[in-house]
Computed example of a mutant assay.
Amino acid sequence: MSILDTARTQVLEQGIPLTEEQILDVLRLPEDEISGLMELAHEVRLKYCGEEVEVEGIISLKTGGCPEDCHFCSQSGLFESPVRSVWLDIAQLVEAAKQTAKTGATEFCIVAAVKGPDDKLMAQMEEAVAAIHAEVDIEVAASIGTLTPAQVDRLKAAGVHRYNHNLETARSFFPQVVTTHTWEERRETLRLVAEAGLEVCSGGILGMGETLEQRAEFAAQLAELNPHEVPMNFLDPRPGTPFADHEVMDSRDALRAIGAFRLAMPRTMLRFAGGRELTLGDEGAETGLLGGMNALIAGNYLTTLGRPMEQDLDMMDRLNLPIKVLNKFV
Rank of each mutant, 00 (worst) to 15 (best):
G15P: 01
Q311R: 14
I16C: 12
L305Q: 15
V330E: 14
W87Y: 15
E188K: 15
A295Y: 05
F329C: 03
D119R: 13
A244K: 03
A157W: 00
T106E: 13
C66G: 02
D118C: 07
P239T: 06
P67F: 05
I323N: 02
I16E: 15
L278P: 09
E199G: 14
N226Q: 12
I144K: 07
E247T: 02
T304N: 06
P67K: 13
G104F: 08
L37D: 15
V178Q: 13
N226V: 09
V83Y: 15
Y48I: 03
E199W: 05
D69T: 03
R238V: 08
V83R: 14
H165N: 13
P237K: 07
P242V: 00
R271Y: 14
H228T: 03
A101C: 06
Q92I: 00
H133V: 03
G288M: 13
G77A: 11
H42W: 08
M208N: 10
G292P: 14
K324F: 08
T304Q: 11
G116K: 10
E95G: 04
R162W: 01
S172M: 09
W87R: 15
E80R: 05
E21A: 15
D69Q: 04
G116R: 08
G203M: 11
T241L: 07
E168C: 02
I59W: 04
V86N: 04
V136N: 06
L78P: 01
K120G: 09
L4R: 02
F79H: 08
H71Q: 11
